[in-house]
């Protein structure tokens, strides 16, 4: 599988004696995926974005973007879009002028830039505000203008740092649709603290903490969707884990009495279907009702388990 982004042994610290903000970090993002970057505050997500985008220089390590090597504005001209987290847009321009300027700098002709600007403004629902000066817009709208700049033209790789921050639910939902439309056309990296949002749109995840990679992989892998089942069952007095483990010795069971959740970890996804019949029968024999059954963990619980 071709990677849109390959990071190897990346290290970064801001001062010579300061702490490592990114430490021996390696990851890859498959081409065409929507990749979520997850981590607590100060984990190094924004620094990672800045390193990839060439705003910061790494102390060591390599970054390969779209097979062109590290960031070079000339090689990646028009191929890469970035929404920086904390960069201001010069508010004294109209949205249209700012985006058209960006589009021309991406190598488009004036006419192409106008078309691309209108498309990008349409994508973020700001066409009717195109001639408004940026400083007259709300924070959320400015964020959408910045997002539009990242989506200008036909980028193959788009990095969005907290794109949903400051957006109302309607706009967040609308932006989510825009990002989903991107699937298959290019690769998208999205960092966000909204895990349910990422769970909905991403197919590849990177978890980062203290500047180090905790885990990367498909959403299914990280959420253990292939091997884990959570059963919410009625109150009972028997040792349900012991009963089921006796019948399914290769599976691992744990029971959260407070939440009445029985967690099942299967050795492989092939055994899940047959085991569910066995579990169902044992529960039924012991007069225990199944109130809910959820395959895999939620992204939130999965991430919390790892961090």
């Amino acid at each position: 599988m071709r990677n849109a982004l390959q990071v190897e042994g990346l290290n970064k610290r801001y001062t010579r004696a300061g702490p490592w903000v990114i430490q021996n970090f390696s990851c890859h993002v498959p081409y065409g995926s929507i990749c979520g970057i997850i981590g607590p505050n100060g984990a190094g997500k924004t620094t990672l974005y800045s390193l990839i985008s060439g705003f910061l220089r790494p102390n060591s390590g390599s970054i390969n973007i779209l097979g062109e090597g590290s960031f070079d504005p000339w090689k990646l001209r028009g191929k890469m879009g970035v929404l920086p987290q904390d960069a201001e847009i010069d508010g004294r321009h109209t949205c249209f002028d700012f985006l058209q300027y960006m589009a021309v700098l991406q190598g488009m002709s004036s006419q192409q830039a106008k078309r691309a600007t209108n498309q990008a403004l349409g994508a973020v629902n700001l066409l009717e505000r195109a001639q408004d000066k940026v400083f007259n817009l709300s924070h959320g709208m400015r964020r959408r203008v910045a997002t539009a700049s990242a989506l200008l033209g036909k980028p193959q790789l788009v990095l969005l740092d907290e794109p949903m921050a400051g957006l109302d639910p309607v706009q967040a939902s609308s932006l989510r649709d825009v990002l989903l439309q991107f699937r298959g056309k290019g690769t998208l990296l999205v960092s966000s603290h909204n895990l349910s949002e990422l769970e909905r749109i991403c197919d590849w995840l990177i978890i980062i903490e203290n500047g180090q990679l905790v885990q990367q992989g498909t959403v299914k892998d990280i959420m253990k969707g292939e091997t884990q089942v959570q059963w919410t069952i009625s109150d009972h007095s028997v040792d349900i884990c012991a009963l089921i483990s006796a019948k399914l010795p290769n599976h691992i069971f744990s029971y959260d009495k407070k939440q009445r959740i029985l967690k099942q970890e299967a050795p492989s996804h092939n055994t899940l279907d047959s085991s569910s019949l066995v579990i169902g029968k044992i529960l039924s024999d012991n007069n225990i009702a199944i109130q809910a059954c959820h395959r895999g963990m939620t992204l939130e619980s999965s991430v919390l388990e790892k961090l």
Binding site: S53, G54, F55, P73, W74, R77, M80, G81, V82, P84, D86, A87, E88, I89, D90, M102, L105, Q106, A146, S149
Partner: peptide
């Protein structure tokens, strides 16, 4: 200071 040149420097030298 306001990092606004990041938008330009993504696209040019």
């Amino acid at each position: 200071k306001d990092r606004s040149l990041r938008y330009e420097l993504l696209r040019t030298g």
